[in-house]
Amino acid sequence: MAAAELLSQEFELGFTYTRSTGPVVGKFLTGLRDGKVYGVRGSDGRVLVPPAEYDPVTAAPLTDFVEVGQEGRLLSWCWVSEPREAHLLQQPFAWAMVQLDGADVPMIHCLEAPSAEAVTTGARVSISWADERQGFITDIRCFTLLQGAAS
């Protein structure tokens, strides 16, 4: 007896959505558009970047914004030797955990570097802004290495 034919069909679904960022994430993204980076001070005194809308420890609403530096320290990284199309950088780059000066926690972004050999944990890095900024995290084009300033 022949096996029964089981039917299947391709099915694609797409929708449009909008999103309101609210007063905290909105402040951060608006800051990026203006070439500034804002964090927020948490209940334990730490400056969180990107800012959290509610305290991760006490759940209190956070409103004490702090502008942090545009340079920082590379805490950890992972080299991407074959970037994918969706990646911001099309040359080999590093995913980087960067703690900006004045921040108490690292944030993740891309680091542009000539090769993996050029990157060392603890290196000093700096924001490289996008030519046109519109309030997205990609307004930070990437981070770049500061020469001869490893700490």
Binding site: S20, T21, G22, P23, V24, V25, G26, E53, Y54, T58, A59, P61
Partner: peptide, 26 residues
Amino acid sequence: RRTDVSIAGLLREAVDRALADADVTF
């Protein structure tokens, strides 16, 4: 439309009022 708040902020508004109504905190 509540474009002034995030989804989290919208929920928190109702939550804060409920906690106050019950006279309790988190």
